[in-house]
Write a protein that binds this DNA or RNA. Structure first.
Length: 573
RNA sequence: CGGGGCGUGGCGCAGCCCGGUAGCGCACUCGCUUGGGGUGCGAGAGGUCGGCCGUUCAAAUCGGCUCGCCCCGACCA
């Protein structure tokens, strides 16, 4: 393509609305423009990147035997009412009505629609396993869209759904997708990690997230050195500590601790370290029950784990009023001793503790030398806290480390959650009607493009991984002589003939402008053609990621670039 | 939805407190100039100051309402 004929409205200054780097650079490079909050137009340059990612995804999905189809964006409320998600999904599900007042929604995901298709068409185990996928615009009415393409309301997603006759087969389908995802993100040139994850709203029994590692990631993951364990912190298991403590119990004692509302303040006042203190968190369940959760002072509670234990979703920390009613003290002094009529559960770290400090359920008072066997009753000890760097790995004898990641893919083993409620059944070899075992698998295509930028950029602009770069080579004539024009024209033609994706900056601009735009757009190779070089019969080829420049004769350029590209598994089609 | 901030030519901003001719930089058009990291000079085009209502002789500026956007918290590809 020639720049003069491509719609690439680059910007010298960043629009003030953009905060994160991928958003800023995509706006500046003329890849996207905002239409409304979280809703964007993809301009030609942006679309080229998306198409490349889609192409890689298609190739790898097809390779697993999955079949592409395309479901509608709009789907009728009845399907969602069947699974209960019409109510359960909440406000994120964008709804609308047609002229007959019939309810519809804009698909945020398509389990209902695909399961409906399955139950209408599939009769026999002989038709299984089956895996169908689509690449489509999804809509989620996010509470707060932000970060450009990283969290839009409308976004492009690849979603796949597998149906199997039995669990072993379903696990195999899951593994196939897992492997395909590793292949896809590897081919995209991204540095990523697959981690164990929570199933959340989608449900099911097992899931992994694929995280692109980047300092700006919203997710925190933990992993051990051997690679034997990696998980989202919200999911990560924390093994129970050894019960080494056999200190004798000392007498319980109330201590006046004026104004010490935080763990830090209490510890400073009593001159103890936070791991000698137990904090008592009062949570309110959706059914308005109160439950006390005991967590060691230097640990953080994990609400997902608490939810899972209670078999609910949506617990919240109790309000200040509730806390003072329940504990007869302001927030900061609640404790398990003497809490009447309230369930008490504890993180299993508490089990190993003796003679610890707790709130006194009285203003400005804490208790020292508390012991759970003697002073209060714990309903259950279990894993309720957030994993953190330095914790022991649950799978090896090394310690966990932390990293930030951007979730670009998520695979779920769903089981029969949808097939049972929607009666998606088939006849097994014994003639028994059986519910299909399902899996579902998503990739955020537009988010992957943004994540690639978050991971690969410098102060000048984007540095695209070769396989998803909008162009392979950027031709930059820096002087306007006849000789330069002819050389560039010939090179451009030969690049096209050789199947290279070439962008020719044929604008009447100064060298500096072209260099800056080229660095911003971030094609892997920049070829500078000027009179100075041509006088010695050479051109300069710069590699965007390393900045390394090699001097080449015009006749050498093509084979040199093709050689450099040959080591990549480039998308085609 | 709670907390914070912002809406002034395409982009980045000043002006607003203290009401009186709408301004700067970049981009855009034309001419000359320059030509290997955002040339220089000159001449232009482009804005009902987010919208509505009010106060006033007079509103970008003061008051009320409203819409939109961004950032921080609870959701997710």
């Amino acid at each position: 393509m020639r720049t003069s004929q491509l719609f690439i409205p680059t910007l010298r200054q960043t629009p003030s609305e953009a905060e994160v780097i991928s958003h800023r650079l995509m706006l500046r490079a003329g890849m996207i423009r905002k239409v409304a909050a979280g809703i964007y137009t993809y301009l030609p340059l942006g679309l080229r990147v998306l198409k490349k990612i889609e192409c890689i995804i298609r190739q790898e999905m097809n390779r697993t035997g999955a079949q592409e189809l395309l479901m509608p964006i709009l789907s009728p409320a009845e399907l969602w009412r069947e699974t209960g998600r019409w109510d359960f999904y909440g406000k994120e599900l964008l709804r609308c009505q047609d002229r007959h007042d019939r309810d519809f929604c804009f698909g945020p995901t398509h389990e209902e629609v695909i399961t409906d298709l399955f139950r209408r068409e599939i009769r026999s185990y002989r038709q299984l396993p089956m895996n169908c996928y689509q690449i489509q615009t999804k809509f989620r009415d996010e509470i707060r869209p932000r970060f450009g393409l990283m969290r839009g309301r409308e976004f492009i997603m690849k979603d796949a759904y597998s149906f199997d006759a039995n669990l072993e087969s379903a696990r195999l389908s899951y593994q196939k997708m897992y492997d395909a995802y590793e292949q896809i993100f590897t081919r995209c040139g991204l540095h990523f990690r697959a981690v164990e994850a929570d199933n959340g709203m989608i449900g099911g029994s097992m899931s992994h997230e694929f995280m692109v590692l980047a300092a700006t990631g919203e997710e925190t993951i933990v992993y051990d050195e051997h690679g034997s364990y990696a998980a989202n912190v919200e999911r990560a298991e924390v093994p129970p500590p050894p019960e080494e403590n056999d200190a004798t119990s000392l007498p319980l004692e109330a201590v006046h601790t004026p104004g010490t509302k935080t763990v830090q303040a209490v510890c400073a006042f009593l001159q103890i370290s936070p791991d000698r203190l137990v904090k008592t968190l009062l949570y309110q369940t959706p059914t308005n029950d109160i439950i006390a959760v005991l967590i060691r002072g230097d640990h953080e509670a994990n609400e997902i784990k608490i939810n899972r234990f209670l078999e609910t979703t949506g617990i919240t920390l109790a309000s200040m009023e509730t806390v003072s009613n329940v504990s007869s003290a302001p927030v900061g002094f609640a404790g398990p001793v003497g809490l009447r009529g309230i369930r008490i559960v504890a993180d299993h770290a508490i089990k190993a503790m003796r003679n610890f400090v707790v709130g006194g359920n009285k203003h400005d008072t804490h208790l020292i030398n508390a012991n759970w066997e003697r002073d209060f009753t714990v309903e259950a000890f279990l894993d309720l806290r957030q994993a953190q760097a330095g914790d022991p790995s649950p799978r090896s004898d090394t310690r966990l480390q932390e990293a930030k990641g951007i979730e670009v893919g998520h695979v779920f083993l769903l089981g029969t959650k949808y097939s049972e409620t929607m009666h998606a059944t088939f006849l097994d070899p014994e003639g028994q009607e059986t519910s299909a075992i399902m899996g579902c698998y998503g990739i955020g295509v537009s988010r992957t493009a943004a994540a690639a930028i978050e991971q690969n950029h410098d102060s000048k602009g984007m540095v695209w991984p070769v396989p998803i770069a909008p162009f392979h080579i950027h031709l930059l004539p820096v002087t306007a002589s006849e000789q330069v024009r002819k050389t560039v024209g010939r090179l451009y033609d030969s690049c096209i003939e050789a199947g290279l994706e070439v962008l020719w900056d044929d604008r009447d601009e100064r060298a500096g402008v072209k260099f800056n735009d080229a660095d911003l757009i971030g094609a892997p190779f920049h070829l500078t053609i000027g009179d100075k070089g041509l006088a010695q019969g050479i051109l300069e080829l710069k590699q965007r990621n390393t900045g390394k420049v090699v001097q080449l004769r015009p006749t050498e350029v093509l084979s040199h670039v093709k050689d450099l590209l040959s080591s990549y598994d480039l998308p085609h089609g």
